[in-house]
Amino acid sequence: MRKIMLLLIVLALAFPGTALAAYPEKPITIIVPSKAGGSTDTTARLFIKAAKKYWPKAEFVIKNIGGSGGQKGFEEIARARPDGYTIGMIFTTQVVAHIVAKRARYTLDSFHIMGNAMQDPLIIAVPAKSPIKNLKDFVQAAKAKSLTAAVNGIGSDDFIAAKKFELLTGVKFNLMPTRGSTEQKAMILGGHIDASFMNLSQLQAQHKAGKARIIAILADKRSEILPDVKTAAEQGYPVSMTATRGFVAPAKVDKKILAKLDDLVQKVNHDADFAAACDKGVLFRLPMTGPEYRQYLEQLQAEVQKFYDQNPW
């Protein structure tokens, strides 16, 4: 029985082995700052599946750290031991909104940005029974009386989109923060609110089924899955906003390891099977390299800062 004890101790010691030359030689943890089953989580799981093709010997473990708008997860990535065995995902606008709101214990410099993978453009949706058919109606109605519009929490991509829209058109919404897209969907489908700012993937099925109406997509071009929905710019309101989901590593990881990881992200981003799986699962790819994504994030942060300074939350 002493032997069992010994065996257990050896087992315990063997686990957190140290990083050595042939990276990766132990499982790589991917921190997903959201609950299991969401679209960020699904992205990570699809990524792992595709990554195995290029790194057949590597093992990946997903660690879901949900809640607080991703902040807990982002902090965990920034704080992780920089040995290359912990990487993570970020999503916008939350990742910069927390910095702007001065509650984050990280900055963009805490991360090495590996690249972006997915996006999810913002949309404006109204209940199916609503008389509002397009953005013009919408702005008119909003000027006539204060419309109740649901967003997913303060500082989220929906919230920034709504603020951008307010800034451009001069209307003022009666904003209703919710605890997530599920609530927004239920409120739109049940007709409890006048409109909702949310992501395309969250409502496209309901739009197709005629249970809700998407009146505008806040992107540069129309979406392939909903070609009938006009962009906001087409309707004369040039507002664009999208949510991105990319990969990062702690900033201090060894340069050689980072180069390997960057390469992997790019390979997966352009993998045909990965693309096919994304299309099937209604995830919209937006491949960006590390430097590109970093620039995007910095711009976004400046933009969010502007809204925060006007009206802090």
Binding site: M1, R2, I4, M5, L8, L11
Partner: peptide, 17 residues
């Protein structure tokens, strides 16, 4: 009993692993 203690400890940890 040392045997019970070690076996239970080992069993639980093995199960968790």
């Amino acid at each position: 009993k040392p045997l019970t203690i070690v076996l239970t400890t080992g069993g639980v940890l093995l199960f968790i692993y």
